[in-house]
Amino acid sequence: MATALPPKLQEYLDDFRFITTREERADFLIDIADSFQPVPPAIATKPYDEAHRVIGCESEAFVWAVDRPDGRLDYYFDVLNPQGLSAMAMSAILDEACSGAPLEQVANISGDVVFSFFGRDISMGKGRGLTELINAVVYHARQRL
């Protein structure tokens, strides 16, 4: 039996399946991006350690994974490009879905979910950057399994 995805991520994916128009997709993602919270100073302050930079993300996204007592991870993000709305939306989804989720489920996330959220009509560079954001989250989970 295939390993499940984090429940909140699955919930988002189910919600996005009902989206039929580009405008509706954009409005949904903008609302999510508006909820984005950058990494708190207790976790990291600028200038950030380059080890946390998401390679390939032109919106200058950074990811931190902090161990919890229960063995799971809390994720934190920042997006330095003020116009990096897509990266902010993806970060907000990953934060909500992956922080505190079972590591096996986080490790099971495929980069292809980018297209479930953003559709196929995104540039190669944008798709790559968002995929690398997911990969960074997945990487930390796999490192601890």
Binding site: R22, A26, L29, Q83, L85, D121, I122, S123, G125, K126
Partner: peptide, 22 residues
């Protein structure tokens, strides 16, 4: 734009969007 969310999130009044893919 490259980022498809920017125009719908706010644009210059009266501006239309031309999306490079679509």
């Amino acid at each position: 734009n490259e980022d498809p969310l920017l125009y719908p999130s706010g644009h210059i009044p009266g501006a239309v969007e031309v999306d490079w893919v679509k």
